[in-house]
Design a protein around this nucleic acid. Structure first.
Lengths: 214, 214
DNA sequence: TATAAACTAGTCACAATCGACTATATACCT
DNA sequence: AGGTATATAGTCGATTGTGACTAGTTTATA
């Protein structure tokens, strides 16, 4: 039922998933996630990690087992998951898979204000997006293929990458279609659209000036 | 080049877009966005709005024009956009349309830890997701159709909804496919997958107990 | 005509987040 | 032998973002 959890950062899910396997210290979590490519699907920053680990400990989902020091390096605290942590991990994971949640993407925000640019410019920008998406999908696909082959991993451990690739390809096809539809005037009359833009706009689009006209 | 901007919350883009049209006070921004359905594509909370408006003002992208009070209600501050604000709005909008950015979705996080559940449960959860996505896409599509008809809006003003619907439908198709592939053992051997799960897991999956075994 | 909803219009304290920074160890190159 | 790049292992300050809360106004309703 999508209740609010005490730790909502998905990085916390990753931490619990890793400690579900075996105890480790934060830095090792980072290297493990990187090795497995999970940092491509869960945003990972050191600063967020240490903060998330702190909250998980405070909430009793993980505990510090021991603190070791290797030479004069900073000391490392090894954490392990608790029973409550295992429960929480499974409950959360089930919820994420079962319930679609609304996400706000940057591109959707941009699209919302598309009429803010004249149609010709919109088309040019979206065509540039198409080019970038093409490059990106090629790159993603080849990374996916070599990852699967080289380490001989079952697809199970890479589904999230297949998902990402699918989304990018869907977006690519859609943007291509929209560009054509704009040009064909199917989103609305091009002259009406153009008329939303006065000459002042052209000025501001052209010069990157230092105007201060409030 | 995706440089870091002083205000990065997309709500700030919406504020500038609205003030680009005409001056208004924050509460009116909310009602306008709601009328136009833009709150479906840009996350909108009062608390974030006032905070974002504050930052925009501090950065000189908008200015308070006047403060009016109607009866004994809290006073309303009417803002207008500055020249710098117009520049920033256009630059940001262009960037959002031109450059695909990596977004981390909740579902991708869930998928990353799919092996954390036994295959039968994974299938059941994903089938439930399919049902929910079906309902959601039907709902989205009908909202889109009635919005277009009832207000006789050109598609231009609803592209972001078409985009959202497209993404949901793409996800729906993909999840259906993955469910079949899991069942067919195409993501990896089902017995190997099952063997990742000991009997202890079954216990913790069954009872919602109060165990405290650290 | 009391009273409950729903609308109007915000404030505030706290928690989450992230960029920038510190500091040692080891491997590699010249 | 000296330099530099990379890996190890984290801390800290400042900013952002949000849930919970306040409080008056209008409209419906029993």
């Amino acid at each position: 039922m999508a209740s609010k959890r005490k730790v909502s950062n998905p990085l916390a899910l990753a931490v619990m998933a890793l400690l579900y396997e075996r105890p480790m210290h934060p830095y090792e979590m980072v290297s493990t996630m990187r090795e497995r490519g999970k940092h491509e699907s869960v945003r990972l920053r050191y600063s967020s990690l240490y903060s998330v680990v702190g909250v998980l400990e405070r909430e009793g989902l993980i505990v510090a087992r021991e603190t070791v020091r290797d030479g004069r390096r900073p000391e490392r605290t090894i954490y392990e998951i608790t029973g409550a942590g295992r429960e929480e991990f499974l409950t959360w994971l089930r919820e994420l898979l079962r319930e679609p949640v609304k996400e706000y993407t940057q591109f959707a925000a941009g699209l919302s204000f598309l009429p803010g640019l004249p149609p010709e410019e919109a088309v040019a920008l979206l065509e540039e997006r198409v080019r970038r998406l093409e490059a990106e999908t090629v790159e993603l696909r080849s990374r996916l293929d070599t990852a699967a082959e080289q380490f001989n991993l079952p697809r199970l451990f890479l589904v999230e990458s297949e998902h990402e690739l699918m989304l990018r390809e869907a977006e690519l096809g859609w943007v291509r279609g929209i560009v054509e539809e704009i040009e064909a005037g199917k989103l609305g009359s091009l002259s009406e659209w153009r008329s939303l833009h006065s000459e002042r706009d052209q000025l501001s689009a052209a010069g990157g000036g230092e105007e201060k006209d409030v």
